[in-house]
Amino acid sequence: MMTQRSTKSYGHCVVDAVGKVYGATEDEAEIVLKDCTFDVPAGSLTVLLGPSGCGKSTLVNLIAGYDKPTLGRITLDGAPVSAPGVDRIVVFQETALFPWMTLLDNVAYGPIQTGRPRREAEQEASELLRAVGLAGFQDRYPSQISGGMQRRAEVARALITRPKLMLMDEPFRGLDHMSRGLMQEYYLKLFDEHRTTTLFVTSEIDEAIFLADRLVILSYKPTVVQTVIDVPLPRPRNFQMLTSSTYGQIKDQALGLLYDEALKAFDPGKAAA
């Protein structure tokens, strides 16, 4: 027995020719997503990488069911996604921990509401908080802990609901460089343990490659999927891999694609000319 970790067989999400237009009138209409097709294999950590403002969050909202695509369809394990549901959970850019609940309550209340016995839910919440390095903080309120700690508590709150698909929308944005690196390590440990199918959104190329089984690289608006790159680095991962040749090749390839898109995002006028 090499490993007891089994890859989850559910959570396979397919985004099929999805397009999204915003704006109430014809004049205001803006094509945000033009044509996005990719899938998130069950049990994988798929990373959505693209320049800022390219519609990554829009895609997350569509998959979460907060909004409906103008064209195309999204399915989760074959069933079409049409509304928010407990099978998908979003970890937002800004913390959405309830400020009026302690960390333990924040993590434990979801499962309690959906019918798990309180004692069992609190036990598991405690264990998850310990796993994200917040063992002594479960009775604190979110305002009493640092931003990095809030992010970790939020990951714990998402994992406890055992979603089929976890949507992480730039969850480590705004953290300083060191905390971000540590968060990535913590998070990967959790992912290796739970193997919850995850779509992770970021605009940081190193973060993307370090975490991903598969990279989905988006263009600037109107957004299309440029390339899907598989990342064959073994798990568990460590920071030494960031200097391996595989890593270097993937980064070169991704950077080449991203650079042009970032340029368009940086100076749309020039790109149009």
């Binding site: 998908r88 937002f92 209340y109």
Partner: peptide, 16 residues
């Protein structure tokens, strides 16, 4: 709105 979305994801019923 984030709090409502989070509550929704976490499976909170209307009364919760």
């Amino acid at each position: 709105d984030d709090y409502f979305r989070a509550a929704h994801c976490l499976g909170y019923r209307r009364i919760d």
